[in-house]
Design a protein around this nucleic acid. Structure first.
Length: 575
RNA sequence: GCGCCCAUAGCUUAACGGAUAGAGUAGCGGCUUGCGGAGCCGCUGAUCCCAGUUCGAUUCUGGGUGGGCGCGCCA
């Protein structure tokens, strides 16, 4: 039974007694040592409703709680204090704090998991790159966000269905195929390395895109191509097939490298028809309107803006396809919740689509949320990718790995891979989702400061200490006499030990909150603080030869590993 | 023109309406014999402006200023 829940439950009873009402109480983690391990502000919130002074209410709560303290709560809580203007602070007992070490070392990989969301099914759509185009850093970021949110949901017991939605028809495809035709002579064959083929596709798209904007005749040519693609005309079929295959194969290699396994891939070509049918059906029912030969959703009626769902050629646009996608997704995996992750520029677009969806299927609309993230910016402007102005996800990963290898020449290749990826993942996920990110290579890769490599380094350190212990004794255990000696010495915990313990106690709560608010950065921040506390402890006290400290170290290592895994970051054995 | 998002130390950033706004980095000053100093400690330094709501506002509301994005046949 965890202390926070014990406190909350008892507090609820007391508050109900005081107010004769059910008021939800909140117990939070204190930020300062002198304010205990947990605090609650119910007294402040209650004061005006029951017409008493906040401080008096706080004392009343304290007195009531102390009266009822017995059993589990009694052994978990050392003392309760009141602080102005009306906070009630709870101090955990040393016994309880020490107990968490056993708990962690027993749970191992399962420390941090819960069954809170057991039975819940969540669909998460993310990454969404378009075949025939580059996989840029925005896709990479979307992938990291989606993957870590998925892992957070899974950690609390939900069943997560990861999906990826890709635009395999549309103008961008025509541009790329035009480019492929122009560069035909340089086109690699299927046996060429994937990276070569992917690079070729990038060049083809860039060429088509540039010519489309600069030359009126080419624009017409590409528009013609686009029609042919929709009609699956034999003249473009082979190039289309090849380009699509190459792109998808390339994306697969990136997902593998990043550690995401999608359950299903959706394509625009497959949901367009369903979407169009839905729109036509609900046009009759009055949800959509005809306007200039197109079918639009009148978003302005709902304080949004109008959008075209079926264009005047009768083809479904992106918005209609998204309606088809929603229906298809639900058919494949009847979810309780659906999360779609994209860049912020689509935020208003999704409001309109959801508004339309709520006319068609209110239930699905109410189950779906859109999370938008900001842009990843590389400062300096000097860093350009090999393919042009667009910075690809692959380039960012390769660059991080090569910088790591250069900075730490003794590191082996696969470790450098993991450390490089950790650098990128941590640097991006430590930020709040939603605001733009200034990505700084030097800081991300450095072992100084809040970085992925710093956390991996701290983890390695915990492992290294434990190994050392195993070398100095037969089986890693101390003799009875040695242990006794240390038991006596450690009757009173050192402040640094206490601070590590007090951090460890909160891991499960932080993970749970991160899942509820869909904020992976809470986990990222927590892990850094834990590592800091551990490193200070490490600095000041000798660990080897002391059973308690060994176990504490082991618990920290386990927690770092579990927490990093929630961010999609792997630990390494040596670095 | 209308709408959405954002604004915190020199820089990058954190903070369910709560306590003295928390870090990293840069700058300055320290830590040998003890496990990986790739680390640790200390100092300096911030809520864009004006009102309002509240016992209490970085957080909520209104109005400015500055930046990003979106607004009918692209995705």
């Amino acid at each position: 039974m965890n202390a926070k829940k014990l406190i909350t439950d008892n507090l609820l009873l007391v508050v109900r007694e005081l107010t004769k009402k059910d008021i939800d109480v909140k117990v939070s983690i204190s930020e300062r040592l002198e304010n205990g391990d947990y605090y609650t502000n119910v007294a402040l919130r209650l004061a005006s409703t029951i017409k008493k002074k906040p401080l008096d209410v706080a004392y009343e709560i304290k007195a009531e709680l102390e009266k009822s303290i017995k059993g589990d709560l009694g052994s978990a809580i050392d003392k309760i204090e009141v602080a102005s203007p009306g906070f009630v602070n709870f101090f955990l007992s040393e016994q309880y704090l020490r107990g968490t070490i056993d708990y962690i070392n027993k749970k191992k990989n399962e420390f941090g998991l819960s069954e809170k969301l057991k039975g819940q099914k969540v669909m998460v759509e993310f990454t969404d790159p378009n075949p025939f185009k580059e996989f840029h850093i925005g896709h990479l970021y979307s992938n990291l966000v989606g993957e870590s949110l998925s892992r957070l949901l899974e950690s609390q017991g939900a069943r997560v269905f990861r999906v990826c939605y890709q635009g395999d028809v549309g103008l961008h495809v025509a541009k790329a195929i035009y480019g492929m035709q122009k560069l035909k002579k340089e086109m690699p064959d299927d046996s060429a390395p994937l990276s070569v083929r992917a690079q070729f596709m990038g060049r083809a798209y860039t060429l088509g895109s540039r010519d489309y904007d600069s030359n009126e005749n080419i624009k017409k040519e590409i528009d013609e191509l686009n029609k042919k693609i929709y009609q699956e005309d034999p003249s473009v079929r082979d190039l289309y097939k090849k380009g699509r295959e190459w792109s998808l194969e390339y994306f697969d290699s990136i997902y593998k490298r990043l550690g995401t396994a999608f359950k299903r891939f959706y394509f625009e070509s497959q949901v367009g028809k369903i979407g169009a049918e839905l729109v036509r059906e609900f046009l009759k029912k009055g949800a959509f309107e005809e306007s200039d030969g197109a079918i639009i959703f009148p978003g302005e009626k709902y304080g949004l803006h109008n959008r075209v769902f079926i264009n005047s050629l009768g083809l479904p646009t992106y918005e209609a396809k998204d309606l088809g996608l929603a229906a298809t997704k639900y058919k494949d995996f009847p979810y309780d919740r659906s999360i779609i992750i994209t860049a912020q520029e689509q935020a208003e677009y999704f409001k309109v689509v959801f508004s339309a969806l709520s006319q068609i299927n209110p239930e699905l609309a109410s189950k779906t949320i859109h999370i938008s993230h900001g842009l990843v910016k590389l400062p300096g402007g000097k860093m350009s990718s090999r393919t042009g102005e667009i910075i690809t996800g692959e380039w960012l990963m390769d660059e991080a790995v090569s910088r790591i290898s250069k900075a730490y020449p003794n590191m082996d290749g696969s470790t450098a891979q993991q450390v490089g990826l950790a650098a990128i993942k941590y640097a991006l996920l430590k930020n709040t989702i939603g605001s733009d990110i200034e990505f700084n290579f030097d800081e991300s890769i450095s072992l100084t400061g809040a970085s992925g490599p710093y956390l991996q380094y701290t983890y390695v350190r915990t492992k290294s200490v434990i190994e050392k212990q195993q070398m100095t004794t037969d089986n890693g255990q101390l003799t009875v006499a040695e242990n006794l000696k240390f038991e006596i010495r450690n009757l009173k915990l050192e402040i640094e030990e206490l601070n590590v313990l007090r951090k460890l106690v909160h891991f499960e709560e932080v993970v749970s909150e991160a899942q509820e608010r869909l904020f992976p950065n809470l986990v990222a921040e927590y892990l850094f603080e834990l590592a800091q506390k551990f490193n200070l402890f490490y600095q000041k006290h000798r660990i080897v030869g002391n059973q308690f400290r060994m176990e504490l170290t082991s618990a920290v290592g386990q927690t770092l590993q579990n927490g990093l895994s929630l961010l999609g970051i792997e630990t390494v054995k040596r670095m």
